[in-house]
Simulated scan of single mutants.
Amino acid sequence: MKFAELLPAVLEIAEEAGRRIMQVRGSADFGVTEKADHSPVTLADMAAHRHIAAELRTLAPQIPLLSEEDADIAFDTRRAWSRYWLVDPLDGTKEFIKRNDDFTVNIALIEDGYPVLGVVVAPALNVRYFAAQGVGAFQIKDGVRSELHVRKAPAIPVFVVSRSHKNPELEAFLAAAPPHEARSRGSSLKFCQIAAGEADLYPRTGPTSEWDTGAGQCVAEQAGALVLRLPDLSRLRYNQKDSLLNPLFAVIGDCSVDWKPLLATIAA
């Protein structure tokens, strides 16, 4: 499969999903309901999901799909997949409901447990991030395309942290960390800030699901970042167990910095 040819088609699918999300955002009623796990879902989530699922089936009918809005697939079935789409049609639903701009459309292609293609579209911010193995990582912001690379960490590094999922573990980590600047962002944009050289470390101290991270991980890794599970610092991997919850992890921009002692405080 030629990722350079596949990437533009997936990007267009995500962009159209973003347009459908924005149509709902312009309405008075988001149709908010609660799923079995008590997380919210809106008309925008479902509109994006239906579009993405239909278009990916047309684009690559042989590749199965795992979406947050259609995730009830037994591990006995999933474990046989060497390649599949991993989708979060609307990442940052809480931000969307609050009418914040930090929500995204995430589409990743997973091969042998790792993301090899990823698209992150932030429709309210008019920015798109996309990457593929052997192709690189890129963004289109306000119509301008540029290649993404992580940066050398400055003397006062920037930590990007969750806006809606702060917890005591994160507060303790930040309190114990050396001098830094902490910025709060929602959704998979935290991965993309590392990829774009706008932040240096993303420590994740709270729960995420695999669809939250697949696309962002691809963008970050193809820009030169490391996405490491905690505490063993192995590469974050997918579809390895019955649960679709991720372990704790960290995204590192400048790999020449020894972040291990600091990250060990999260593992503890």
Rank of each mutant, 00 (worst) to 15 (best):
K98P: 03
K98C: 01
K98S: 09
R99W: 10
R99S: 10
R99K: 15
N100T: 02
N100I: 10
N100M: 14
N100E: 14
N100L: 15
D101Y: 05
D101R: 05
D101S: 02
D101M: 03
D101K: 02
D102A: 06
D102G: 01
D102H: 05
D102Q: 04
D102N: 04
D102I: 01
F103Q: 02
F103C: 02
F103D: 06
T104D: 14
T104R: 14
T104P: 14
T104C: 15
V105L: 07
V105C: 04
V105F: 03
V105W: 01
I107F: 00
I107W: 05
I107Y: 06
I107P: 06
I107H: 03
A108C: 10
A108H: 03
A108P: 03
A108K: 00
A108G: 09
A108N: 10
L109D: 07
L109H: 08
L109N: 11
L109F: 12
L109Q: 08
L109K: 07
L109E: 11
L109R: 12
I110R: 04
I110N: 03
E111D: 08
E111T: 00
D112K: 14
D112C: 11
D112V: 06
D112R: 14
D112E: 14
G113L: 01
Y114I: 15
P115R: 09
P115L: 11
P115C: 11
V116G: 09
V116I: 13
V116K: 08
L117H: 04
L117T: 08
G118Y: 10
G118P: 10
G118H: 02
G118M: 05
V119Y: 06
V119W: 08
V120R: 08
V120I: 13
V120W: 14
V120Q: 10
V120G: 14
V121I: 13
V121N: 15
A122K: 10
A122M: 13
A122G: 03
A122C: 13
P123A: 09
P123Q: 00
P123V: 05
P123W: 07
P123S: 08
P123H: 06
A124Y: 11
A124W: 12
A124P: 11
A124M: 12
L125D: 04
L125Q: 10
L125W: 05
L125T: 00
N126P: 04
N126Y: 11
N126R: 15
N126D: 15
N126I: 02
V127A: 11
V127T: 04
V127F: 01
V127H: 02
V127D: 07
R128Y: 05
R128M: 07
R128T: 11
R128E: 12
R128W: 01
R128F: 00
R128Q: 07
R128L: 09
R128S: 15
F130M: 10
F130R: 08
F130T: 06
A131Q: 10
A131W: 05
A131F: 06
A131G: 02
A131C: 07
A131K: 03
A132F: 02
A132D: 07
A132S: 02
Q133W: 04
Q133K: 12
Q133L: 15
Q133N: 13
Q133S: 14
G134D: 04
G134A: 00
G134Y: 01
